[in-house]
Computed example of a mutant assay.
Amino acid sequence: MAASTFRIGGDLTVRRLGFGAMHLPTEPGAAREASVAVARRAVELGINLIDTAHLYGGGANEELLAEALHPYPEGVLITTKVGVARSDDSGEWRLDGRPAVLREQVENALRRLRVERIELLQLHRIDPETPLADQIGTLRDLRTEGKIGRIGLSEVTVGELGEARGIVGIASVQNRYNLLDREHEPVLTACEEAGIAFLPWRPVAWGDSGANAEVAAVAAELGATPTQVALAWLLGRSPVVLPIPGTARTDHLEENLAAERLDLTPAHRDRLDGLSG
């Protein structure tokens, strides 16, 4: 069986199968109450890597997690992302990695999450209109000031990762990657070689795995669901892979966690390895 934990940045131990909070409704009422219950259940089940972002409701998702989990149990890591902002003119979300914006979003995240330091802060996207050195340099300065513990990136190329690592140590990369979509295989390889955590977003292809005949066949043979097969494949793909499947339902949460106990045989892995696209 694959190792169940990973040390982000070499020193921050988390359970490899985490939780993506993006899908949790934040509006007042029954939906929000259900979201709080799901977040709390995730921690009860031993999940200690929870992913959110400023983009998710303009900070509303961060506030929801604080409401549900603060004061945070020991060892629980809430990682958030900055670098996407609403345009003052159109109100639409756009990439914005200007130093002042990144600083403001980090300060707001600290307040919303009710923490003095964000142990893992990820740049949601690289802003092509702002020099990378300015974006990464700002996060490096915030780390020096003690407001960030470790720095991560999202949706980057191998070249961008290398350039960023020339400025500051990078602890994690969050790129789109799953059993049927391996466009960022070279980035995963680079992360594996450097010991950098790789957090695949959209880890189960949003249901597409279940529509794939080969995945469905493997799932049937193992008495599992296609989602569990997809997550088990990711966990076995590389020790640096930390999937963060998201859901707003407790039953799906428990289904996802059961993927840790699913043992794919070498023959099953060979069949699944041949799938992509």
Rank of each mutant, 00 (worst) to 15 (best):
Gly223Pro: 08
Arg182Pro: 02
Val76Trp: 10
Leu264Ala: 05
Ala109Trp: 08
Thr225Ala: 10
Gly159Tyr: 09
Glu145Ser: 05
Gly223Ala: 04
Asp96Gly: 04
Phe198Ala: 06
Ser4Arg: 15
Val43Phe: 03
Val218Phe: 13
Glu163Asn: 08
Gly75Phe: 04
Gly159Asn: 13
Arg111Gln: 07
Ile167Ala: 06
Ala248Ile: 10
Ala100Thr: 09
Ala39Asp: 14
Gly277Glu: 15
Ile151Asp: 03
Leu161Ala: 11
Pro73Phe: 06
Ala68Gly: 04
Glu92Val: 10
Asn48Cys: 11
Arg41Asn: 10
Glu214Leu: 04
Gly274Glu: 14
Ile136Tyr: 11
Gly152Leu: 07
Val215Asn: 04
Ser276Val: 08
Ala109Arg: 05
Asp51Ala: 06
Arg40Glu: 12
Ala205Pro: 09
Gly277Ala: 15
Thr80Ser: 09
Ala53Phe: 11
Glu92Pro: 12
Gly246Trp: 08
Ala190Ser: 03
Asp11Leu: 13
Val215Phe: 07
Glu163Tyr: 14
Ile136Lys: 12
Gly149His: 03
Thr157Ser: 13
Arg7Phe: 03
Glu214Gly: 00
Met1Cys: 01
Arg143Ser: 03
Val43Thr: 01
Gly83Ser: 12
Val106Pro: 02
Val76Leu: 10
Leu120Thr: 00
Arg261His: 09
Ala248Arg: 15
Thr227Cys: 05
Gly152Asn: 12
Ala100Tyr: 01
Val82Ile: 14
Ile118Lys: 01
Gly137Val: 01
Val101Thr: 13
Ala211Gln: 15
Gly20Cys: 09
Leu69Met: 00
Thr5Leu: 05
Pro186Phe: 08
Leu113Glu: 07
Phe198Trp: 08
Ile148Asp: 06
Asn61Lys: 00
Arg40Lys: 04
Ala85Tyr: 09
Arg143Lys: 15
Asp11Met: 14
Ala68Tyr: 05
Ile196Met: 04
Ala220Glu: 15
Thr26Arg: 04
Lys147Glu: 02
Asn256Asp: 09
Ala224Val: 03
Glu214Asn: 02
Val106Met: 05
Leu180Pro: 09
Arg16Cys: 09
Thr5Gly: 02
Thr26Gln: 04
His70Cys: 05
Gly169Val: 09
Ala220His: 02
Val240Phe: 03
Tyr177Asn: 10
Thr157Tyr: 07
Val241Gly: 06
Gly9Gln: 06
Ile118Cys: 09
Ala219Gly: 12
His70Leu: 03
Arg140Cys: 03
Pro73Ser: 10
Gly75Met: 07
Gly210Arg: 01
Leu120Gln: 00
Leu275Met: 10
Ala2Asn: 15
Arg249Leu: 11
Gly20Thr: 06
Glu254Tyr: 01
Ala37Pro: 01
Glu116Phe: 01
Thr138Glu: 12
Ala211Trp: 08
